[in-house]
Amino acid sequence: MNSVVLALTVAVSLAFTAAGAAKLAATDDMRRRADHLGWSVRSYRVIGTLELAGAAGLLVGLALTGLAVAAAAALVMLMAGAVAVHLRSGDAVTAAVPAAVLGAATVVLLVLRVFVVDAA
Protein backbone atom coordinates (compact mmCIF):
# COMPACT_ATOMS: atom_id res chain seq x y z
CA MET A 1 0.00 0.00 0.00
CA ASN A 2 1.31 3.41 -1.01
CA SER A 3 2.01 5.57 2.08
CA VAL A 4 0.45 8.64 0.42
CA VAL A 5 -2.75 6.70 -0.21
CA LEU A 6 -2.74 5.42 3.35
CA ALA A 7 -2.23 8.89 4.82
CA LEU A 8 -4.85 10.47 2.55
CA THR A 9 -7.32 7.69 3.33
CA VAL A 10 -6.90 8.22 7.05
CA ALA A 11 -7.13 12.02 6.76
CA VAL A 12 -10.24 11.96 4.55
CA SER A 13 -11.85 9.31 6.76
CA LEU A 14 -11.20 11.38 9.88
CA ALA A 15 -12.71 14.48 8.27
CA PHE A 16 -15.84 12.61 7.21
CA THR A 17 -16.07 10.92 10.61
CA ALA A 18 -15.95 14.28 12.40
CA ALA A 19 -18.51 15.86 10.10
CA GLY A 20 -20.78 12.82 10.13
CA ALA A 21 -20.65 12.40 13.89
CA ALA A 22 -21.55 16.07 14.43
CA LYS A 23 -24.54 15.73 12.10
CA LEU A 24 -25.62 12.46 13.68
CA ALA A 25 -25.33 13.96 17.17
CA ALA A 26 -27.32 16.98 15.95
CA THR A 27 -25.02 19.46 17.66
CA ASP A 28 -26.34 23.00 17.99
CA ASP A 29 -24.11 24.15 15.13
CA MET A 30 -25.39 21.37 12.87
CA ARG A 31 -29.00 22.16 13.80
CA ARG A 32 -28.43 25.79 12.81
CA ARG A 33 -26.77 24.75 9.54
CA ALA A 34 -29.57 22.34 8.70
CA ASP A 35 -32.18 25.01 9.38
CA HIS A 36 -30.28 27.61 7.35
CA LEU A 37 -30.10 25.26 4.37
CA GLY A 38 -33.77 24.31 4.66
CA TRP A 39 -33.09 20.76 5.80
CA SER A 40 -34.63 18.92 8.73
CA VAL A 41 -32.43 17.61 11.52
CA ARG A 42 -33.52 14.13 10.53
CA SER A 43 -32.29 14.68 6.96
CA TYR A 44 -29.01 16.03 8.28
CA ARG A 45 -28.65 12.92 10.43
CA VAL A 46 -29.12 10.77 7.31
CA ILE A 47 -26.33 12.73 5.63
CA GLY A 48 -24.18 12.22 8.72
CA THR A 49 -24.85 8.49 8.59
CA LEU A 50 -23.81 8.43 4.93
CA GLU A 51 -20.61 10.31 5.77
CA LEU A 52 -19.80 7.84 8.55
CA ALA A 53 -20.54 4.89 6.29
CA GLY A 54 -18.33 6.38 3.59
CA ALA A 55 -15.49 6.93 6.07
CA ALA A 56 -15.79 3.32 7.23
CA GLY A 57 -15.86 2.17 3.60
CA LEU A 58 -12.63 4.03 2.88
CA LEU A 59 -10.90 2.44 5.85
CA VAL A 60 -12.15 -1.08 5.20
CA GLY A 61 -11.34 -0.39 1.56
CA LEU A 62 -7.67 -0.36 2.45
CA ALA A 63 -8.05 -4.13 2.23
CA LEU A 64 -10.89 -4.28 -0.32
CA THR A 65 -10.24 -2.12 -3.36
CA GLY A 66 -13.78 -2.26 -4.73
CA LEU A 67 -15.21 -0.98 -1.47
CA ALA A 68 -12.73 1.90 -1.35
CA VAL A 69 -13.61 2.94 -4.88
CA ALA A 70 -17.36 2.74 -4.24
CA ALA A 71 -17.09 4.64 -0.95
CA ALA A 72 -14.92 7.35 -2.48
CA ALA A 73 -17.24 7.78 -5.45
CA ALA A 74 -20.27 8.04 -3.16
CA LEU A 75 -18.53 10.60 -0.95
CA VAL A 76 -17.54 12.68 -3.99
CA MET A 77 -21.18 12.76 -5.08
CA LEU A 78 -22.25 13.68 -1.54
CA MET A 79 -19.80 16.59 -1.47
CA ALA A 80 -20.89 17.75 -4.93
CA GLY A 81 -24.42 17.83 -3.57
CA ALA A 82 -23.25 19.77 -0.52
CA VAL A 83 -21.60 22.39 -2.71
CA ALA A 84 -24.75 22.69 -4.81
CA VAL A 85 -26.97 23.06 -1.74
CA HIS A 86 -24.77 25.83 -0.33
CA LEU A 87 -24.76 27.73 -3.59
CA ARG A 88 -28.48 27.21 -4.16
CA SER A 89 -29.28 28.52 -0.68
CA GLY A 90 -27.57 31.81 -1.49
CA ASP A 91 -24.52 31.22 0.71
CA ALA A 92 -21.28 32.92 -0.19
CA VAL A 93 -18.98 30.72 -2.24
CA THR A 94 -16.71 30.48 0.80
CA ALA A 95 -19.41 28.50 2.63
CA ALA A 96 -19.05 25.74 0.04
CA VAL A 97 -15.26 25.62 0.24
CA PRO A 98 -15.02 22.96 3.00
CA ALA A 99 -17.24 20.56 1.03
CA ALA A 100 -15.38 21.37 -2.20
CA VAL A 101 -11.97 20.78 -0.62
CA LEU A 102 -13.05 17.53 1.03
CA GLY A 103 -14.64 16.44 -2.24
CA ALA A 104 -11.46 17.29 -4.15
CA ALA A 105 -9.31 15.36 -1.67
CA THR A 106 -11.63 12.41 -2.11
CA VAL A 107 -11.32 12.67 -5.91
CA VAL A 108 -7.54 12.56 -5.55
CA LEU A 109 -7.86 9.49 -3.34
CA LEU A 110 -10.19 7.86 -5.85
CA VAL A 111 -7.83 8.53 -8.74
CA LEU A 112 -4.87 7.21 -6.77
CA ARG A 113 -6.74 4.04 -5.84
CA VAL A 114 -7.95 3.34 -9.36
CA PHE A 115 -5.00 4.43 -11.48
CA VAL A 116 -1.92 4.24 -9.29
CA VAL A 117 -2.07 1.88 -6.33
CA ASP A 118 -4.31 -0.82 -7.65
CA ALA A 119 -3.03 -0.59 -11.22
CA ALA A 120 0.47 -1.49 -10.07
Score class of each variant (00 low, 15 high):
W39C: 03
T27A: 14
D28P: 08
S3A: 13
V85F: 03
G57V: 10
G61P: 11
G103K: 09
G66Y: 07
V108S: 05
V69Q: 08
F115N: 00
A92Y: 01
V76S: 07
D35S: 06
V76E: 08
V117D: 14
R32A: 13
L102Y: 05
A55F: 12
P98K: 15
A26H: 14
L78K: 07
V4K: 00
L59D: 09
V116M: 02
T49V: 13
L62Y: 05
L112K: 07
A11V: 14
A95Y: 02
A100D: 09
A11K: 01
L110C: 06
L109V: 04
S40D: 03
A95N: 02
M30N: 01
A73F: 11
V46Q: 06
A92T: 07
V111Y: 08
V117G: 03
A56S: 15
T94G: 06
A95I: 02
V76T: 10
A105I: 04
G20I: 07
V76W: 05
V76P: 03
T17M: 11
G20H: 08
R42A: 14
R88E: 15
T17R: 07
L8M: 15
G38W: 02
D29S: 13
A34P: 05
G54A: 10
F16Y: 13
M1C: 02
V46D: 01
G90P: 04
A68C: 14
V12P: 00
E51S: 14
